[in-house]
Each structure stands twice: as C-alpha cells, then as structure tokens.
Design a binder for these strands. Structure first.
Lengths: 162, 162
DNA sequence: CCATTTCTTGCGACTGTGTCGCAAGTGGAT
DNA sequence: ATCCACTTGCGACACAGTCGCAAGAAATGG
C-alpha cells in the first residue's frame, strides 16, 4: 500500500473532480482517530462544510471504495447495521471486535498474506478485497468472564453478546 | 463442529421451547441449497407456516446466532445490505464473492485455522466468530476481464464493481 | 388431561441506512 | 470569462431491523 500521498493528491492524479464537499469528507476520514460510519462522517464533515448532504456522503464513500482508497468494515455490527470506513494506508490488518467491552483491536500477521496467496493460487481468484473480522472477547474481558463464571454458573440460554 | 444431529434436537437439548414457527424456519435453513437472507427465509417459511411474521424471523435468527447454530454472512453485500445465514455444520470455510458474475464460492484451508490460533495466542483473544470474506473476480471472470481489457483499454474511472 | 405459568408470536409503528431522479450549481479546461 | 460535464442538494422512497404490547401457545406439574 502506498504510504505518503494524501487522498486528495491521489484523487487529482486520477482526474477526479475535487469539490469542497469531497475535500471535507476526505479530510475527516483521513484525520479520524477511530472508525467512522456514514452518519458520523456526515456530522463531522458538516463542521467544515455545513450544507453537505447525506446523499453526497454515500456517493463519496462509493467513489473512494471504487478507487480503492478506503476500506469498508462491519466490525461485527456491534451496534446496529452501520458500516465503518478507514483509509487504506497503514499496513494490512484485521479487526478484533470484543462483544463485551466493544473495543476494536487491530491485528497484523504474515499469515493473512499467505492465506490470500493460497486463495489466489488454488481458487484462481483475483482478490480485490479481503475482509477478515473476528468477534469474541478481548484479553481483559475473557479474564473477567472467566472469573465471573465461577461466581455465577451459566444457565443454558444465558449466552452473551451480539 | 458436531456433524450429525439436527438443529431441532440441538435446541431441545438446550431447553429451548419448540414452536411451529421455529420448526419451519429451522427446516428451511437446514434444507437450503444456497445462502438465504431474512426475506427469503420468511417467504420459504411461510410456505410451511403461513402466518409467520417478519419479527419472528429476526428473533429466531438472533436466537440461533446466540446458540451458535448458524453463521451470519455479508457476502460482500453484492446486492443490497442483506445478511445471509448458513448452518454451522460443514467444515469451516470462507466465502469468495465474484463482483462480476455474483457467484459465491466456498474455500477451505488449514491456514485459516492457523491464523485463528495465532490471533488467539498473540492477542489473547477468545474468538467466538471469525468471518473471512473475499471479493474480486472468480477464475472465469478474471480470464474474461483480461481478454476484454485488450479490446477496450480502461479509462481512469471505469472501475468495476461494488 | 387440564390448569398454570412463562415464553413466544403477531401486529403495528417506528428508526435508521442507503438509493434515486431531477433541477440547480460548480469545477476545471479552454 | 465561458461552457459543459459532472456533482450536489433535495425530497421521496425502499427496505432491514427493532420494539412494546396484548393475545396465544408450549411445557410443567398436579
């Protein structure tokens, strides 16, 4: 993944018309500290470009996805059926979503690349997107649950999460 | 994954109340040849149990997910934002979704298990669900696209799919 | 076999995400 | 500065999924 070159330059290079709305959205995505969904994206972009519309957000997301500048994530749908977005710059990674505390952890490993290679080779599949998402309990929550299990043995249906 | 034991027996064993609606839904899921979304599930279940309601479908899906009897898939959202469901019996596999022809291919590899092990060990993460979905072009479509690319060189923005 | 309790269902209303057609507006090339 | 194609905002819409509540049904024990 190419590292230093802002999305804006990227778009220019591809001959995409640069509007104030797109600039606002792109800046928001790029500076985001966490994963943002369409609604938060809209809210944040409006702080820079008040008139911006929901439809424009969705259209821009679609554009950036097609140009492979951002990735779409589900994050196990921990809250509602939103989708989240992140810039495709950092090293390829996967997401661990904790059902208990809701935290999202990122994880990198060479095995992921190997796995993709194997898929491409064995299935003859030209991979454009590979999305690996994991749900469960993070280290802290797994420990907490373990401790809790002793105090309060679980009933058949008391299944946690999601 | 336990292999031979119907979902119904499974539910009974867990002390879940067995209603006609649940039975209908479970039969539909179990006998499905392809991946079904909530709407198709409803339509098919109504052939057996006419009065059944949308809400019941969603509630039953939720139940079966919690009991870990079915898996939820996005299949790259090839058409709309639906979710698809499949019984958790067959060998663990991942899904390859072709953006061009829409076909869903299943793929199994030991690497997937290894990857999950590594996540569990290194991150201390207690995995409940691991969902790996891949989008791109299947073998046939990749070949077709390759051939097509010669006849018609692509413009900057003519990015296919999704 | 019936009564009781508890769980489940259907219904209707609602929330929220994402899509679309169209007229007005604007970026960027000339 | 002009012009055209592309983009936007708007309103309306489609559709997934959720919820509270009253009526109905499954399982339990008498």
């Amino acid at each position: 993944m190419l590292e230093r070159r802002s999305l804006i330059e990227e778009l220019n290079a591809k001959g995409v018309r640069l509007t104030a709305q797109r600039r606002a959205l792109i800046e928001v995505i790029q500076e985001a500290k966490e994963h943002l969904d369409a609604a938060s994206l809209l809210a944040l972009a409006r702080q820079r470009e008040p008139g911006i519309d929901r439809a424009t957000v969705y259209r821009t997301i679609e554009l950036l996805k097609k140009l492979r500048l951002i990735d779409e994530l589900d994050l196990m749908h921990l809250e509602g059926e939103k989708h989240y977005y992140e810039v495709k710059t950092r090293r390829e990674h996967l997401h661990l979503a904790c059902f208990r505390c809701g935290r999202i952890e990122e994880f990198s490993t060479a095995l992921f690349e190997q796995l993709k290679d194997e898929i491409a080779r064995q299935a003859g599949f030209a991979i454009r997107i590979a999305r690996l998402e994991v749900g469960g309990n993070c280290r802290a929550c797994a420990a907490a649950e373990e401790a809790g299990a002793n105090r309060k043995p679980e009933k058949a249906l008391a299944v946690a999460g999601h």
